[in-house]
Nucleic acid binder design. Structure first.
Lengths: 237, 237
DNA sequence: TTTATTAGTGTATATTTTACACTAATAAAA
DNA sequence: TTTTATTAGTGTAAAATATACACTAATAAA
């Protein structure tokens, strides 16, 4: 049942059946006011060459989170990335090959720091969540579940910053939240709320690329965030 | 890798390793103003006779939800119960036996309709979440994750009613929410809010057991709830 | 008939959320 | 060099929502 390469102290469950376990990774980035997801052409049968999330099988000797990190690293070169489990997809016949259950995680990455050259060998590309093609198996379901989860989490935890570079402007931050919730946000109310939490550091430099006037850069300040939490309040947008 | 008893059309992934997959079930009930969980003494090694959640191994020929429903039925005799996936627990060595990943689901049941006589053969009993003993492996973590999830869900979906009988009084319903959130709720504000949604049907009968005056029974009305949703509003407590 | 217990009700205040329009800076165009 | 076009940045008033709070009603038990 269990791989020979990993020897457990005893085999208590030798009468039990084991199943193939995969991980699928919803790698999300933010670009041009839109959330994007990295997809690639499935490199093996069945459904070879169809669009698919980044995935891989869990090995006998690795933990679940290890497997997800390995897959993320293989396709993006990134480590230490914010990830969260979305859920398990385990109905019979969800995979056309064999009986496989798959565990979906999403990752929030800075697209500019992401090297997809390795993934591009499998035809990988970033696609906007608004123009996502049909993916193999239940991968589209995984994506919609991920977006719902992200919407919930981003409202109460400061995880959105993972999608931006170290420095960002408030207009960019607002565009990010508008992309996550797919609805416009009032500029003044947004600024009031985010600045009231006092978790951002205003820099003296401006981004002059996206406007003539130029918008000040800000940084997320983890220490300030800890203070907010310690004071009994919490992140909320 | 895959069980002989279930034949897939082809074996595409024959070079992959498979792992044991279990399901664990956090069976929740409501009794005497407290949330309760069904636990039992683990019937096999390792850690035989230690307190444990209700669980079982996923069979080669059954879907995940099928496995959870099977386990729930075995220990409670119940079918058609509200359940939700909490997550996967899959680090190496989380189980002392072999490498096992477990998928946790919680179930919301009416304790009065639950027959635990079968489970009692394994020493099963209901325990309050406030006096939960140490459970095997990471089962305590599963319970705390479940409670967090339940708190989130019960605030926006009318799932709490699954913990009550068909008929219930408003004082009982309030006690349920106080148990879920572990904090007192103002009686008048609670009634105002729940009745404003217009999803309850007031009956003419009273519960005279828990007070001298007696409290009117109410029923959750699914049709009324659908109307609320159709009108663009949503459940919120 | 008195007492003790829980059910049931409304309003005023505080807080939060929402809606909304002008000035500032500056690069590009005229 | 002046004008124009574009995005950044700012405060207040109204509406909606959440909170705090105390008495009367019913009735079984004493």
């Amino acid at each position: 049942m269990i791989s020979d390469s990993y020897t457990m102290p005893e085999h208590f469950y030798s009468d039990k059946e084991s199943v193939l376990v995969a991980v699928d990774c919803i790698i999300m980035g933010f670009h041009e006011s839109d959330l994007h997801i990295l997809i690639a052409k499935r490199p093996f049968d069945p459904l070879r060459s169809n669009w698919s999330l980044m995935g891989g099988f869990v090995k006998g000797n690795e933990g679940l989170s290890g497997a997800v990190q390995r897959v993320l690293y293989e396709y993006t070169g990134l480590t230490g990335i914010y990830m969260e489990q979305v859920g398990v997809y385990g109905e019979m016949n969800r995979d056309l090959g064999e009986r496989v259950i798959s565990i979906a995680h999403y990752a929030l990455v800075d697209m500019d720091k992401t090297d997809i050259s390795n993934a591009e060998k499998h035809g990988a590309k970033w696609v906007s969540i608004r123009t996502l093609p049909k993916l193999v198996f239940d991968h589209n379901l995984m994506v919609t579940d991920t977006i719902k989860r992200l919407q919930q989490r981003a409202a109460v935890k400061p995880i959105g910053f993972n999608l931006l570079g170290d420095q960002f402007t408030l207009p960019t931050l607002q565009a990010l939240y508008e992309a996550i919730y797919q609805e416009p946000i009032d500029k003044r109310n947004f600024r009031k709320k985010i600045l009231a939490m006092d978790i951002l550091e205003k820099l003296e430099t401006k981004d002059k690329d996206s406007s003539k006037k130029g918008a000040f850069y800000y940084q997320f300040n983890k220490e300030k965030y800890e203070l907010l939490i310690q004071s009994g309040l919490h992140f909320s947008l």
